[in-house]
Write a protein that binds this DNA or RNA. Structure first.
Length: 222
DNA sequence: TCGTGATCATGT
DNA sequence: ACATGATCACGA
């Protein structure tokens, strides 16, 4: 699939997927559906990327660079509630003294997002999970404020050597959690007294209560 | 090892 | 029931 040349084309493609199952889409693209996602946790996201013509790969840029749009699949329950938090990006742990919110990866990643809900209740086989109606989102003033406050608080803790005291519960809408191959992975960070330390790599995640609000706004429900 | 795509699975 | 902490695969 070629990359969409404009936002309208992207949304037409996205809306054309609504109602189809992951199995139907996989068949159309010609790829196999795994029995479960234990060993391929990113499978759904990558399937949708292919279908919409996102530039594949693991580059640190938006899924649709020309459009400045980030694609996020959002697993939801039968009641339309998010089933998981949403990964945003890796958290920089060193050399962050002069970063501002507007320059941050979090702000840039979330500036324009195409959310695509997937009915992904765990008791539904992967192939039978249904693609929902995608919608574009740009944070409004209030959402921006909430994100910025959490980000600034978390980044200050990181910069001041408090990273090992940060737990998932710290933010209101944005949280910091491990993002690594396993709990033994290490990366450089700042210790309690400003000394260099090795710690578990972390990533920023959106809490489900936040993404649920986005769904509610988009579909006027919940 | 980092950054992409995320979900798993246990503890509360 | 739900969120936190842990984990999986892949490319550069």
């Amino acid at each position: 699939m070629t990359s969409p040349s404009n936002q309208e084309q992207l949304m037409r493609r996205c809306h054309a997927l609504a109602g189809f199952t992951l199995g139907q889409l996989a068949a159309q693209i010609g790829c196999k559906v795994p029995a479960n996602l234990k060993r391929e946790k990113g499978w759904t996201g990558q399937l949708i990327e292919q279908a919409l013509g996102a530039s594949a790969g693991s580059k640190a840029e938006p899924d649709f660079p020309e459009l400045g749009i980030e694609l996020k699949t959002l697993p939801i329950s039968r009641l339309g509630k998010p089933l998981e938090s949403t990964y945003v990006c890796i958290a920089p742990l060193i050399g962050i003294t002069h970063q501002s919110w507007n320059e941050s990866w979090v702000c840039q990643k979330l500036s324009h997002v195409l959310w695509l809900p997937i009915l992904a209740e765990r008791d539904i086989p992967i192939a039978e999970r249904v693609i929902g109606t995608g919608f574009l989102w740009q944070p409004n003033h209030e959402e921006q404020q909430l994100l910025q406050q959490d980000w600034e608080e978390l980044m200050e803790l990181i910069a001041l050597g408090g990273i090992d005291r940060i737990r998932g519960a710290h933010g209101h809408v944005l949280q910091l959690r491990p993002k690594a191959a396993n709990s033994h992975a290490l990366t450089s960070a700042v210790g309690t007294h400003g000394e260099p330390i090795q710690t578990l790599p972390r990533g920023f995640y959106l809490k489900t209560s936040f993404t649920q609000r986005l769904l509610a706004k988009a579909f006027n429900s919940n």
